[in-house]
């Protein structure tokens, strides 16, 4: 069984024995007009012929289960093969823990395949047990810390099985490894939002301080500044002076350290955050100046955007549109 599941037998003889003698494969002939016809290997073409026959008969058997592994080994994106595999698992009452191992091996081979991750999730749901999921997603994330599928699956497991306890620590570990890992920043927002929320002043202050600490490590990193923007636009946000002090301090530090280095660019993420903050908090003059220096010197690739922002900040333009950032989306 295990052998079949891995699709690891000698390809040439797979269908030659007695096991498949009663099945007539169904071909999928196409004429010269066929578009984007894939030049399959002959082994895969043969496998697909038997797969069609099994589907047609809706045969949910051990050999059909093993055949799905063969189809998946040739094309892991065949969503019908995955679906039919689950039908077989259910009909046969297979050991789902073993199936999770199959999903693990498949994901380690193709960590960015949607169908594999969906299958894993479906099996975890059938098991009603998510106890392996944090460890497994961590293994994938240690190899590729921005794997979108792994983060998505991790969010599912955290919510579905209420596994929040160590998650902030996990996020901090990843940010310690790479402060520019925006996936980890997003995860931090997700965890705070779904555990304590941001309504408590202590939590807001903790998060603001965390973001500023990380911003100082790398002021050219958009992630902490977006995190700050997220907090600032919360209806409960009142810590204007905390943000102003930190911002003034960091801007001063950056400017001072670039003095005497006329060609040194100041970090656009920091300056762009300052445009938003000063513009919304009664200092449009400062914001306008920053727009000019961003356009001319520090961020010329976005000069048209900064010219637009400057225009929005000037009193006789549509100044009503500048002020407070709108409330966050529901």
């Amino acid at each position: 069984m295990q052998q079949h599941d891995e699709g690891g037998e000698d390809a040439g003889g797979y269908f030659g024995g007695a096991e498949w003698a009663d099945v007539t494969p169904i071909d999928a002939p196409e004429g010269d007009e066929a578009c984007a016809q894939i030049n399959y290997t002959s082994e895969f073409a043969e496998t697909m012929g038997y797969f069609r026959a099994v589907l047609r008969a809706d045969e949910r058997s051990k050999r059909a289960l093993a055949l799905t592994a063969r189809v998946i080994a040739g094309n892991a994106a065949n969503y019908t093969a995955w679906f039919f595999r689950r039908e077989c698992l259910k009909a046969l009452g297979e050991d789902l823990k073993k199936e999770l191992e199959f999903a693990t091996n498949a994901a380690l081979r193709s960590p960015k395949n949607y169908q594999i991750w969906y299958h894993r999730r479906a099996v975890v749901e059938m098991l009603g047990d998510g106890s392996d999921e944090l460890e497994f997603t961590e293994e994938i994330l240690m190899d590729d810390s921005k794997n979108y599928h792994a983060w998505s699956h991790r969010q599912f497991a955290l919510q579905r099985f209420d596994l929040w306890d160590g998650e902030i620590a996990f996020v901090e570990k990843l940010l310690q490894m790479d402060v520019r890992n925006n996936s980890a920043w997003n995860q931090r927002w997700f965890v705070v939002k779904n555990t304590t929320g941001f309504d408590d002043a202590e939590i807001r202050e903790r998060e603001l301080t965390f973001a500023w600490t990380q911003a100082k490590r790398a002021p050219n990193n958009e992630s902490p500044f977006n995190y700050l923007r997220g907090i600032i636009r919360l209806p409960s946000f009142v810590e204007v002076s905390l943000v102003r002090n930190e911002l003034d301090g960091l801007l001063h530090y950056v400017k001072a350290s670039s003095e005497g280095h006329p060609n040194k660019q100041n970090p656009p993420p920091l300056l762009g955050f300052a445009v938003d903050f000063y513009g919304a908090n009664g200092e449009p003059g400062l914001a306008t100046e920053l727009c000019d220096s961003l356009a001319a010197e520090h961020d010329p690739i976005r000069r048209k955007y900064w010219a637009y922002r400057r225009e929005q900040l000037t009193p006789n333009a549509a100044s009503a549109e500048v002020a407070p950032v709108p409330p966050s989306a529901p």
Binding site: D178, V179, R180, R217, A218, N220, V254
Partner: peptide, 8 residues
């Protein structure tokens, strides 16, 4: 000021 493996 810039720090960490990520920055490098």
């Amino acid at each position: 000021m810039e720090g960490g493996d990520g920055a490098a």
